[in-house]
């Protein structure tokens, strides 16, 4: 029932998916590559590579700060996409989803954006501020280029859930609670019910994001959904070691990072 051709055949499993999010260029392109490789080692199935944006409406303070750091380091949509071949050279095999707000895409232009994604071997794209009603042209281009356009559903999507889920490609991003991205302490019963409802309509894996920050969350979500998306928690781990990186202890930092990710997804 779940499509195996997703992400150009590169996504081989359809349950217990671990989909980490990091911001490209936070704190530097080189470290983004290192973090991505560590995430793959710890079992990441898809990498969500976030493009920093000046006005990230859907994001909470943690990812806002990361975006600021990455922008200060000179990251852009174009450079983030061009980081993907570098990641491949260094051994990244899992599919990459470029996560970007719409305005930088519009600035490059739809056609050129998809050419860039294709040339650089990007398998998916997620645009958080481009809802179903505004995304027709982008969805068509994505289909033509065989790049997965990832859709989102939220607890208040209501009647739109069915329509969005039926058109979903790659995986369906299920926003667990109302609000911006950020770590939360608990998963509510309503959130779990909502996940079940989404799964009824979806022909692609349903992955849950927004607020997942502990191994207990991961376990609980995996009982109901097909995977977890973890962003703010990982970005905060990166943020907490900035001082150590500055003082040259990068290899220690990367080892600790791997250990924290292992605890987060494997307990």
């Amino acid at each position: 029932m779940l499509t195996k051709q997703a992400f150009q055949g590169k996504l081989t499993k359809t349950e217990n998916l671990f989909i980490p999010f990091i911001v490209a260029g936070d704190p530097s392109p080189e470290l983004t590559i290192e973090y991505a490789l560590r995430l793959q080692e710890q079992g990441a199935d898809i990498l969500e590579l976030g493009v920093p944006y000046s006005d990230p409406l859907a994001d909470g303070p943690t990812i806002q700060r990361a975006a600021k750091r990455a922008l200060n380091a000179g990251m852009s949509l174009r450079k983030a996409i061009q980081l993907v071949p570098e990641l491949r050279k260094r051994g990244l095999e899992i599919p990459v989803v470029i996560f970007t707000y719409y305005n930088p895409v519009l600035r490059i232009g739809h056609e050129e954006f998809f050419d860039l994604l294709e040339e650089n071997g990007v398998e998916g794209v997620l645009i958080p501020d481009l809802p179903y009603e505004e995304s027709e042209e982008i969805r068509d281009l994505a289909l033509q280029k065989e790049i997965e356009f990832i859709s989102l559903v939220a607890p208040n999507s209501d009647k739109r859930v069915k329509q969005i889920a039926e058109h979903a490609r790659g995986f369906l991003y299920c926003v667990s609670t109302l609000g911006v991205t950020g770590e939360r302490n608990q998963m509510t019963a309503e959130a779990l019910q909502f996940i079940e409802k989404v799964k009824e309509h979806s022909s692609v894996p349903v992955a849950v994001g927004f607020g997942i920050s502990s191994y207990e969350h991961v376990q609980l979500v995996n009982e109901h959904a097909d995977g977890v998306i973890i962003g703010s928690k990982i970005v905060r781990i990166i943020e907490s070691s900035l001082d150590k990186i500055e003082s040259g202890q990068t290899s220690d930092v990367l080892e600790e990072f791997s250990e924290e990710i292992r605890r987060l997804v494997k307990g």
Binding site: L57, E133, A154, N156, R160
Partner: peptide, 12 residues
């Protein structure tokens, strides 16, 4: 014009 907002705002 239009509505370029996160999915969570489409309902409201």
């Amino acid at each position: 014009g239009g509505k370029y907002v996160p999915e969570t705002l489409m309902g409201p």
